[in-house]
């Protein structure tokens, strides 16, 4: 690898190039956007049916149910993060490209968030109405999901990268990733509960933001290292 080949396109161009390519691929395969949203809606619907449809009861569990379902929807969508690229060989091209791998991983994670985390966040208030979330909670729910879902995508990328070369990934991915999601769940629902009880939420949001920043710095590196291992194995 000579210096001139690095100079041909800048790392920024490589980042935006991957971004554009992945977004285009997703828009050609729209089910990847719709399926997690459908799962989210259906899973939320099960709770009133399975537990109790009473408004007072539902408003107590609304924040938790919405967060848990958003988390599971993200988890189910993680397969699509690297699987397709692994199958058609473009993942290898990303790994051997002269650009830092974590930058390219970051661009893929950004696409994943744009097509799952962001739509989930936008859909959540609608489902929150059906779950009788107290009025004060809506703003907080929206902000926590906006801060929390990128972290879910970032951490999930590590698990997806570790399992991309394996045949059966579903349950294994769940086992690897869900324990790591627990802190985000705790502070996400904690913030919404606190608002509903009229308490301050600044602390919760600050911690969610801190977790996002840690994940932003470390997760792409770990996922990049994991991708290299998966391609060798």
């Amino acid at each position: 690898m000579t210096d001139s080949s690095v100079g041909q396109i800048s790392t920024w161009r490589a980042f935006t190039g991957t971004l554009k390519r992945d977004l285009l691929l997703v828009f050609r395969r729209r089910s990847d956007i719709v399926n997690p949203l459908l799962f989210f809606s259906i899973a939320v619907t099960l709770f009133p049916l399975g537990i109790s449809p009473e408004p007072e009861f539902l408003s107590n569990i609304a924040a938790g149910v919405l967060w848990v379902c958003a988390l599971l929807a993200t988890l189910l969508s993680l397969d699509s993060l690297f699987q397709q690229d692994m199958a058609d060989g473009s993942l290898e091209q990303l790994v051997i490209s002269p650009h830092p791998l974590f930058i390219l991983v970051l661009s893929k994670v950004l696409v994943h968030w744009l097509v799952t985390g962001l739509p989930l966040t936008l859909l959540a208030p609608l489902l929150a109405v059906m779950m009788f979330l107290p009025d004060e909670g809506f703003g907080t729910l929206f902000i926590t999901l906006l801060l929390g879902t990128p972290t879910l995508s970032l951490i999930g990328a590590i698990g997806a990268a570790l399992t991309v070369g394996l045949r059966k990934t579903g349950v294994l991915l769940t086992l690897l990733i869900l324990p790591l999601y627990i802190p985000i769940l705790i502070f996400g629902t904690g913030a919404v509960m606190a608002t509903s009880n009229g308490m301050a939420v600044g602390g919760h949001l600050a911690i969610l933001g801190a977790m996002f920043l840690i994940a932003l710095v470390m997760a792409p590196l770990a996922a990049g290292a994991a991708l290299k291992i998966s391609l060798n194995g």
């Binding site: 590590i158 570790l162 070369g165 690897l176 770990a222 290292a225 994991a226 291992i229 998966s230 060798n232 194995g233």
Partner: peptide, 10 residues
Amino acid sequence: QSAARASAIL
């Protein structure tokens, strides 16, 4: 080898 490295990252 891959098993060892992957679980080390995890």
